[in-house]
Nucleic acid binder design. Structure first.
Lengths: 207, 207
DNA sequence: AGTATTAAAGTAAGCACTTACTCACTAACT
DNA sequence: AGTTAGTGAGTAAGTGCTTACTTTAATACT
């Protein structure tokens, strides 16, 4: 009687599964989906290739698992958004920029994964891009809108303004970390943030 | 024998080598270096695979040829820079943004090639990234510097300011064309450009 | 308790196919 | 006749994925 009582215990393979996803994430971020072999993943995880296929029937499923976990995990950005909700005015922009720059400098793998995902289009990548890429935009858009309503900022399409600010910050991160341009250009984060926020805030200020 | 996919035919004066580079550029931009097979290139060029290796001893050499030609070709950006030299003040920013947005919308393959090149790092990609990525930045940086010296803009590190403006424009292009976010957000180019340039110019203006 | 049963976790080897790359050879042009 | 551009049929080294089998450990049944 296989169904009579199924104790809800930790599936024995759960740890391994998580480990495989972890290793795969590393490698996909480094070399892309197409540039990573299942053999490589197995080797780095210290197991045989077949184990991977015990847990994920296709290589593509591994990718899905990564995207899924990255989408649902509320660690990074949601905590950031909560933190930002306590701030007001210019502070929000400063804190947002500071967080993003330092986070991407510390570990650029998320940025790489997102970009690879955009170029090699898979089924789920669109959802990934959309949730992760638009999450912050929408928050900052709402913040800008409220500042406009308060009369602090001049009347401007908040969606476009939000993209202007995020563009400054994100493209800076991308060109420094992904394009590897930090060899040719280095300034302290605070300096860059100060100038970016100033340009944006002064440029948007009602007068 | 006729191919199911339309072969990219060789132009009358064009030699095989140039044709191969052309086809490879298309495919590398679409699927990346690792995601493109020599077989695919041959098929699309309507020739056998061996011909490719008559002209390029390794697949990597094909990539080098692409990067080389893209680096040395003065068609797109240099002409733009010449055009911009006739303009002054705010106009420069507007024209620059308008050119980049419409160019990337018309054909995003250059953007894709550059981004793939950044992720899959090959020997030459750094030079590619550097020349193509920094060319415009340096021009706009010089323009900003002169506007500061004239007293039009307030004293700011021109390198950072240039990156702020280019970030707005390029990240907008990238998120629209590469991340495929234009489904979720569409505004007329002029509207976006107007807002971007306004934020930047007002934010930088001396008062 | 001690033993049998079961299921999952693991492996080594290999399958069918694709990859970049080669070569012996043919036709065509000068 | 010799150079050139081209090919079809290879090659060895991968590729994702499967198979046939062993180990481990928890459970079920005397």
């Amino acid at each position: 009687m296989p169904d009579s009582k199924k104790p809800v215990k930790r599936m024995p393979g759960e740890d391994r599964k998580a480990q495989i996803v972890k290793v795969a994430t590393l490698l996909f971020a480094k070399n892309g989906f197409k540039g990573t072999t299942t053999r490589e993943i197995a080797r780095k995880a210290g197991i045989s290739e077949a184990v991977i296929f015990k847990h994920f029937s296709r290589k593509e499923d591994l990718y899905k698992a990564i995207i899924d976990s990255r989408c649902s995990e509320g660690t990074g950005q949601s905590r950031l958004i909560n933190h930002l909700k306590g701030k007001k005015g210019k502070e929000v922009f400063k804190d947002l920029a500071a967080f993003l720059l330092s986070e991407h400098q510390r570990d650029s793998s998320f940025l790489r994964l997102l970009t690879y995902s955009a170029l090699e289009k898979h089924d789920l990548s669109e959802i990934f891009i959309k949730t992760k890429g638009l999450e912050l935009i929408e928050f900052i858009e709402a913040h800008i809108k409220s500042l406009i309503d308060e009369g602090v900022l001049k009347k401007t399409d908040p969606a476009v303004a939000a993209r202007a600010f995020m563009g400054m910050v994100l493209h800076y991160s991308i060109s420094q970390e992904l394009y590897g341009l930090k060899k040719y250009f280095e300034r302290p984060n605070e300096t860059v943030i100060d100038i970016f926020v100033n340009i944006f805030f002064e440029g948007m200020k009602r007068r």
